[in-house]
């Protein structure tokens, strides 16, 4: 896998901000009541992540270390304000449905986290890919949660009514926590299984007998064995 593939996989799966790192929980719980809300919020965060990562990466050599956090916050807040203006002008319904969570993107720790951990140290293109991948990971997570909550809570799928039977629990806060917990558990279960499967396939490919580590032995270990 090349560098960009690894960054993409990292943002989408390996270090998924929502299900693995449990970042941006406020928006996740508040805006996953419907699939459309989740998708809208996810795309908004992706755009802010992309723009803020690019700008921060461009300015990484200019911004002194001592003032990097306030500088990042100002850049992120600018991007979020711009996004608000664009949404209010061109997508007022989405703007209304996101309510207070839209300005709250400024304090989403996932965005500041990526700025601090990645964009402030890496080149522009890498940072852009990281922003998109992390944002898409967040988007997919929110959309999945939104689909589940909307399906059971409102009996619809992306606003299309499917049935009249609804379970109110899924639309309230407790339901959001419940679905979040279930999603995290399933995500960990699936990623663990896939990882095991990949490890086994790798081991098979290297023809390493069962019980032995596929990793090369350390020099220290080799010396001991020799001794």
């Amino acid at each position: 896998m090349n560098k960009y593939g690894k960054i993409t996989m990292d943002g989408l799966v390996t270090n998924n901000a929502t299900f693995k790192l449990v970042l941006g929980t406020c928006a996740t719980l508040g805006l996953s009541s419907s699939a459309m809300n989740g998708l809208g919020m996810g795309i908004s965060v992706t755009i802010v992540l992309l723009l803020s990562n690019v700008v921060i990466s461009l300015l990484r050599k200019v911004i002194p270390n001592t003032v990097r956090i306030p500088a990042f916050i100002v850049i992120i807040a600018t991007m979020v304000t711009l996004l608000r203006m664009v949404l209010y002008k061109f997508m007022p319904d989405l703007y209304d449905s996101m309510g207070v969570f839209l300005p709250l993107i400024v304090v989403n720790c996932m965005i500041l986290g990526r700025a601090e951990a990645f964009a402030s140290k890496q080149p522009v293109l890498d940072s852009a890919v990281d922003g998109v991948a992390t944002g898409l990971g967040f988007t997919v997570a929110l959309t999945i949660m939104g689909i589940i909550r909307e399906f059971f809570g409102s009996g619809s799928f992306f606003g299309m009514k499917l049935w009249d039977f609804t379970i109110g629990f899924f639309t309230n806060s407790a339901g959001a926590f419940f679905v979040y917990g279930i999603c995290i558990a399933l995500f960990i279960l699936i990623t663990d299984q896939v990882e095991k499967m990949l490890r086994a396939r790798r081991a098979k490919a290297l023809r390493i007998p069962d019980g032995l580590s596929p990793l090369p032995a350390t020099e220290e270990g080799t010396e001991k064995e020799e001794a």
Binding site: S34, N37, D96, S97, G99, V100, F101, S154
Partner: peptide, 10 residues
């Protein structure tokens, strides 16, 4: 103004 759960209203 200040209604944090507005996204619940479809």
């Amino acid at each position: 103004e200040g209604q944090t759960y507005i996204s619940k209203f479809g």
